[in-house]
Structure formats: structure tokens, C-alpha cells
Amino acid sequence: MKKIILGIVTLGLVAFTSCKDDASKKINEANVAAAAERDSNASKLPILTFDKTEHDFGDITKGVPVKTEFTYKNTGTAPLVLTDIKTSCGCTVPQDWSREPLAPGKTAKFTVDYNASGPNKITKTITVSANTEKGSEVVKITANVIDPNAK
């Protein structure tokens, strides 16, 4: 048994000490520089900042469409790209948004149409997906829908 253990240890030592090439000689300096640049750019992200995160339409009439506009700015250090805008229901429709990159410091906007089909207080969310660190931001619309035919 001692001979088997001694044989395994000897074999392990030979295997680990047989590498004659110095690993540091295999490092390509161009790759190191490219990795350093990539890592420094990874921390440069766009930041999506809205002028408002909620719009209150107040009292609106059932069946009468209303519209608002959300203005946003890229306050980060890299181009901002909106990849999608989704709403919490089909009665809320985002429009006029660009998929083109927005340079740092620039502003853009999108509109949201809402057509109420039922009475009472509503809150609808609009999720804006983008290439930011967080990945998405949420804005809201609220209203008090009045049915003129209700008794």
C-alpha cells in the first residue's frame, strides 16, 4: 500500500514539474491592452432620466382618448438605446419612440395614448427597456375616468 501511494505522489510531482515553458512568455501584450480597454468601457453606461415618471390626466371621460408625452435624457456616458416599450394593458399605447442610439446629454421623447373603457381611478404602467445598468425603467399614467352615462 505504501508503494502505491509513493508511486502516485511521484507521478504527480513529475506531471506538475515537467512543464518547461514559462507561462508568462505566452501572454500577448496586445490582448492585455484590449482587455483593459474593454473593462474600462464596461463601466461607461447610459443612464435613462425622465422629466417626469408619472402623469396624472385628472378627470377624463370614458371613451375619449387622451395623450401625454414623456421626455427622457441620456445622462450617462455611453449611447442610450431603447429596445422596447410595453404597457400594462392594451388601452395604453406608446408611440413615436426611436430605436436609434441617443448620445450622452441628448434628449428624446415618446407619447402615450390612453383610451378609457371603464369608470373609476386607474393607474397604468409603461415599462421602458433600454441598455442601462438596470435594464428597464417604469413610468405611470393615472386618471379618474368618468362615465357620463352612469346614473
Rank of each mutant, 00 (worst) to 15 (best):
T10I: 13
T10V: 07
G12C: 05
G12H: 10
V14H: 06
V14R: 07
V14D: 10
F16H: 04
F16C: 03
T17R: 13
T17N: 11
T17K: 14
C19T: 15
C19S: 14
C19E: 13
D21P: 00
D22G: 03
A23T: 14
A23R: 06
A23I: 11
S24Q: 11
K25W: 02
K25V: 08
K25T: 10
K25R: 07
I27H: 06
I27E: 13
E29G: 04
E29D: 13
N31E: 13
A33D: 07
A33S: 08
A34R: 07
A34G: 01
A35L: 12
A35M: 04
A35P: 00
A36G: 04
A36L: 11
A36N: 14
A36C: 07
E37D: 10
D39C: 00
S40G: 00
S40V: 00
N41V: 01
S43W: 05
S43A: 08
L45D: 04
L48V: 12
T49W: 08
D51G: 05
K52A: 07
K52I: 12
E54S: 09
E54K: 09
H55P: 00
H55G: 01
H55M: 02
F57I: 01
D59S: 06
I60L: 13
T61K: 12
G63E: 05
G63K: 10
G63R: 06
G63H: 12
V64F: 14
V64Y: 15
K67V: 06
E69N: 11
E69L: 08
F70A: 01
T71P: 00
T75Y: 02
T75V: 02
G76S: 04
G76L: 03
T77L: 09
P79D: 09
L80K: 07
V81A: 04
V81N: 03
V81Y: 02
L82P: 05
D84I: 05
I85Q: 12
I85A: 01
K86V: 07
K86T: 15
S88H: 05
C89E: 09
C89A: 12
C89S: 10
G90H: 03
T92G: 09
V93Q: 15
V93G: 05
P94E: 02
Q95K: 15
D96N: 11
D96W: 09
W97Q: 04
S98Y: 07
S98L: 05
R99K: 15
R99H: 14
E100C: 03
E100Q: 14
E100D: 13
P101K: 06
P101R: 06
A103C: 11
P104W: 02
G105L: 12
G105F: 01
K106E: 15
